[in-house]
């Protein structure tokens, strides 16, 4: 065996710093990942909210979980896009010809997705507070909500990494963003699913975003979470593991 000193965490922190700069130097990314969901929240609460029968007297409370998921989903196109650029422009080749841990470059992108989404989530929750969001949830419930959001982010990030690493064109790399964007719209995020036509409501009831939204809503309202939380966790962890395996396989093929 070779005895090369291991600098994994140093390397990872350099990669993280690099991708963070990419994120925060792109006005476009910040608009899509943070400002757009806030704008949607304003739109739904102050324009459509009066007409929507959510069955709850505080529509911001009802809306917040879905808006958070939407913010996270919106940022995924950028993960694909940045990975695609690194592969195409030869930056990964440069890194891989250097004595650094091979997976550090990829994990840098994944961690940035976590950190930047955490920032977006905090900003959105603060604005929701200003708009009247209130929660009786205790520390444990909040931790559970944070955990679900982190898992959801990781699952989508690994999913977005696959086209980023394998796409032949930039358009192909970011195409993943579209189906991910649609999911929160066809879910219980904005209106109760029982108001939808049967076919749509069956889809909405059985797709990941609905159970994740319902679980978060129950946690934030101090209501019993029932099965939703387990279904939500199963979706997140399932997608994450499958996507991780395929992304890693694509990554190893690339290097």
């Amino acid at each position: 065996m070779e005895t090369i000193k291991n600098y994994y965490f140093t390397d990872l922190s350099v990669m993280l710093g690099r991708s963070m700069r990419h994120h925060f130097r792109s006005v476009d990314t910040i608009i899509t990942a943070t400002i757009m969901p806030v704008a949607l929240m304003l739109l739904f609460v102050y324009v459509l909210g009066g007409a929507i029968e959510s069955g709850s007297n505080n529509y911001v409370n009802y809306l917040l979980p879905g808006v958070l998921l939407m913010a996270i989903a919106n940022s995924m196109g950028y993960t694909s896009f940045r990975l695609f650029n690194d592969v195409q422009k030869g930056i990964f080749e440069r890194f891989h010809s250097m004595p650094i841990a091979r997976s550090a470059a990829l994990w840098g992108h994944v961690l940035v997705s976590l950190v930047s989404n955490a920032v977006s989530v905090v900003v959105i929750i603060l604005i929701a507070f200003i708009m009247g969001f209130r929660s009786p949830a205790g520390v444990l419930s909040w931790l559970a909500v944070i955990g679900i959001l982190a898992l959801f982010t990781l699952a989508l990030t690994w999913l977005a990494a696959i086209p980023g690493l394998t796409a032949k064109t930039q358009d192909g790399a970011i195409a993943i963003a579209y189906p991910i964007h649609i999911l929160p719209l066809i879910s219980s995020a904005f209106v109760p699913t029982n108001t939808m036509p049967t076919v749509v409501s069956v889809f909405a009831e059985n797709q990941p975003v609905t159970s994740i939204v319902n679980a978060m809503r129950a946690l934030l309202n101090n209501q019993p979470v029932g099965n939703d939380i387990w279904i939500a966790l199963a979706w997140c962890i399932g997608i994450m593991l499958v996507a991780y395996i395929f992304a890693m396989r694509a990554y190893k093929k690339r290097v």
């Binding site: 930056i91 010809s97 004595p99």
Partner: peptide, 17 residues
């Protein structure tokens, strides 16, 4: 890898930095 350096065919520089 410890003992070499590579300058690839296309300038592999980070444009955003």
């Amino acid at each position: 890898r410890q003992s070499i350096s590579l300058t690839g065919q296309f300038a592999a520089v980070d444009e955003i930095l």
